[in-house]
Design a binder for these strands. Sequence first.
DNA 1: ATTATTATGGATATTGATATCCACAATGAA
DNA 2: TTCATTGTGGATATCAATATCCATAATAAT
Lengths: 146, 146
Amino acid sequence: MFRLYSKACEYAIRAFLCLADQRNKSNLTAREVCRRARIPESYTRKVFQALVRGKYLGAVPGNGGGYRLLRKPDKVSILEIIQAVDGKYTFERCIMGVSRCSCRRPCLLHSTWEASKKSLLKELNAAHLEDLIRAGNYFSAGKAKS
Amino acid sequence: MFRLYSKACEYAIRAFLCLADQRNKSNLTAREVCRRARIPESYTRKVFQALVRGKYLGAVPGNGGGYRLLRKPDKVSILEIIQAVDGKYTFERCIMGVSRCSCRRPCLLHSTWEASKKSLLKELNAAHLEDLIRAGNYFSAGKAKS
DNA sequence: ATTATTATGGATATTGATATCCACAATGAA
DNA sequence: TTCATTGTGGATATCAATATCCATAATAAT
């Protein structure tokens, strides 16, 4: 079925929003982030590791340690998070599974999808963590059903 | 990662285009459709079964039998095929996995996604089998990598 | 009626995404 | 130094999507 992004990515977005909300305060442990964001801890830990390697998160091990956002919430778009977790080219693969699909050798849905994708990416690129938190539904957002 | 639709759906679209191209001629066996569309036969057979139940395809068993499109190619949109295979509500599930997400109780990405989805569905609804075949890239479309 | 052909439905195998667990390294506090 | 705390990395488990196989039913030709 349709999926905009992976589960790992869903958790990352929720965690980022949590960490963005915590900005300028002390860092948060993985346990605490996952508790607040209501996402599975053991799995999300793996996601964090990748995000640390990608320089999105800073990690401090040991007593008093935890994670913190390395970039300003108004500079991190949802599109960036998706690409950081699901891969830079997650939206570039041919939706018909044609390996050598391109404008010159288009698959059957190439132009249709190109048009749709353009507006999709535009929206995702325009949505920043800061905006979503300001929108005010941060704490009312329900639990993700894992 | 991102997926507009399932593999089953990808095969259905390719098969439908093949059957639409065959319109007004005799029906085609599953084997022949899959050979022409370059999709795995054993799996696609299962997809056909569902499409027969959904009244999209007509099936004739026995010698000389096969499948045929029950509706005119200019009346079948890509969106319809997707919904027939992946479920009518495949685009309606909350992308944040929030079970009770709605306009009144929006998830963090609700409005962002609603805007994106609107244009996406518009494109998919406007693309009909007839159009895609007329576009002329039907036979040049490469093999899907299974 | 017999045979060849074709779709159907059930059962099972394979694969990738998701999820969990545990030993280990790193850090701060006592 | 010793201890509690916390992130890291490897291994493994679980689950849903994908894929394959086989016995059976339906149909046409002979």
